[in-house]
Design a protein around this nucleic acid. Structure first.
Lengths: 341, 341
DNA sequence: TGACCTTGCTAAATGCATTTAGCAAATTTC
DNA sequence: GAAATTTGCTAAATGCATTTAGCAAGGTCA
């Protein structure tokens, strides 16, 4: 039959002391005047019995549960941003916390329910994450609940961990320029809606702002901008196909993400051209696809894991607030070469 | 200032009744003899105050927390199997439970720690998941803790949710046969280690067993078997390239997974051949890649979400035990056609 | 009218760890 | 040697919901 749980009282009894003493010793209370002998006896007793404090009972008293809530729209669900969870999980584990994961599909009702559910379990804080960085609706939280936004922003909760897209956008252009590209650069995935922000993402607008500012700094202009609404492989394929139908002076493609670049590869191959000899490509995200492509795709990575980690660290130790910008690593593979003469 | 939590006592006071009455009414106890009037007053009071039971306090008493533990090696982490989590999360939400997610990287020490952590939080049950279905080491659990294996097996915990790979393997062959393929079928990804099982996966051995049995039923034989160790795009590319170098009668490829098939597409395109006109391809997993490929890849899907859902349902309502085989859906896209004459 | 139910409700115990208040013995201080 | 500290430890309260045991008022049966 199920062996009963070992309680603090059991430990105290075995050590020949009161639960009070046992509690103080096991929690390492500093000012206590308990003897060394008492310490030894309690520690020994706890060890022999394999004592583990009941988190519920402790939480009832202290309001701390070493548990954090991770509420996201579709992060866990989708393969795109699962790095956010991984990073958060790592940081939580490192801090001796566990994570309650919830998905709301972005629906306000489920979101409210999710917040209630984690609050009922007295979480020490909540991370709100979104897949595509955007302004997130967050119902009022009881005062004193701390929260951090992950890949999201919200007017009521200023601490937000975001990728440094402005810098990332600049880096993508720099990569091309440094390889010698000046003419024949086209942009695939430009999108007014995105530039005007809001709908899709709070940060992708910055990506393109970075791109444009770096282009301007180098006195360059795109020879074409293929605007597409969705950024899936199919869209990238079509846009690139159209582009190649129209012009024959394309030497480099700046794709708004790796899935678009994936489609661009297909269109380029179909035309009998080669990456990077005929056309260089640089892109964003460092999706798993980027490594699978032949040749490997050079891309500016979305630092999902680092962001997830940072969010949890900030939740547990709020050392700074406001927008925390995490650098986007440059992942160089083989899709960029010097332009052919 | 932080508004105090509303407790059951508050509700009782407002309703002019004892906490006992309030508790019984809110929990819908059947045999109670409390008046309709009392019911109404308590419900009204709970509603006006926005009362939410403290899960820790309740758990202390009842040992039920409406929380389940999801312990995996690298499932959350990796994009491959995130569907397992999604399905589990859905089922948990549907049952009014929340999920504590932990990742152990497959390390026994972290695994033991994770089990301790979720047990400390009095979870109602634990789902143990692995990315690649395999026999999973699970430290002893206190008796009475229920557990189900997800995409994994374990001698001590018989309830295991697995994909029906045997059937899936057969279906892949059927797809080819039904399209008219009899000759010129090659297998990419055969691997003795896998067939002998254990190391890689408890279920992939069944996949290939299914393939072989269906081939035998139709009196067919592979014209070639390219054995590869890893099943990544690069490996599939190389294996297919080698195959095409050796023979020119290849009409159909049975790839052990979509990443291998992805590599096969690359090798086929490089040779100036076309899918499916020159070579049909069928594969396994229904990785996101499968939809991105041109033409779309027909594949036997790993039913991750359905599996995750099933595992949680079984954990909460153990209606059956042993191996629960979840069917692998056939996802038909455009990589199979009748063999050219 | 007295024994026995019902009905409608509540007091108090319980689960477990933490924490406040404080007691008794030993030691120090003047 | 009496008063004041210090040392070492504990009783009891607390947080919150659930649950067992049982009470008082009104009704029924004979």
């Amino acid at each position: 039959m199920a062996s009963k749980r070992v309680t603090l009282a059991d430990v105290a009894r075995l050590a020949g002391l009161s639960p009070t003493a046992a509690s103080m010793i096991l929690n390492g209370r500093p000012d206590t005047r308990l003897s060394q002998d008492a310490h030894d006896r309690v520690n020994a007793a706890a060890a022999t019995l394999g004592y583990r404090p009941n988190v519920a009972a402790r939480g009832l008293r202290t309001d701390k549960t070493r548990t954090i809530g991770f509420i996201s729209d579709v992060v866990a669900t989708t393969r795109f941003a699962s790095g956010l969870i991984k990073g958060a999980l790592d940081a939580a584990e490192a801090a001796g916390h566990v994570m309650l994961v919830m998905e709301t599909g972005g629906e306000p009702a489920r979101e409210t329910e999710a917040i209630g559910a984690v609050l009922d379990r007295q979480v020490d804080g909540i991370v709100f994450a979104t897949m595509r960085a955007r302004e997130l609706y967050v119902p009022d939280l009881p005062l004193g609940t701390n929260a951090v936004m992950l890949n999201a922003t919200n007017p009521n909760h200023s601490t937000a961990v975001l990728p440094d897209e402005l810098r990332g956008g600049r880096d993508a252009v720099e990569l091309l320029v440094r390889a010698g590209h000046r003419d024949g650069i086209a942009l695939i995935g430009q999108n007014d809606e995105v530039e005007r922000d809001v709908f899709r993402s709070a940060t992708v607008a910055r990506r393109i702002a970075g791109i444009r500012s770096a282009m301007a700094d180098h006195d360059l202009a795109f020879i074409a901008e293929q605007s597409i609404w969705l950024w899936e492989p199919e869209d990238g394929y079509l846009a690139t196909k159209t582009l190649l139908d129209t012009r024959d002076d394309v030497r480099a493609l700046l794709c708004m993400n790796d899935r678009v670049a994936f489609g661009a590869y297909q269109a380029i191959a179909e035309r009998g051209l080669r990456v990077p000899d005929d056309i260089s490509i640089v892109s964003f995200d460092n999706d798993e696809l980027a490594a699978y492509l032949r040749p490997g795709l050079t891309t500016i990575a979305l630092p999902h894991e680092a962001m997830g980690r940072r969010a949890v660290e900030l939740l547990l130790h709020p050392t700074e607030s406001g927008e925390i910008l995490v650098p986007m690593p440059i992942v160089e593979r083989h899709s960029i070469s010097a332009p052919s003469a």
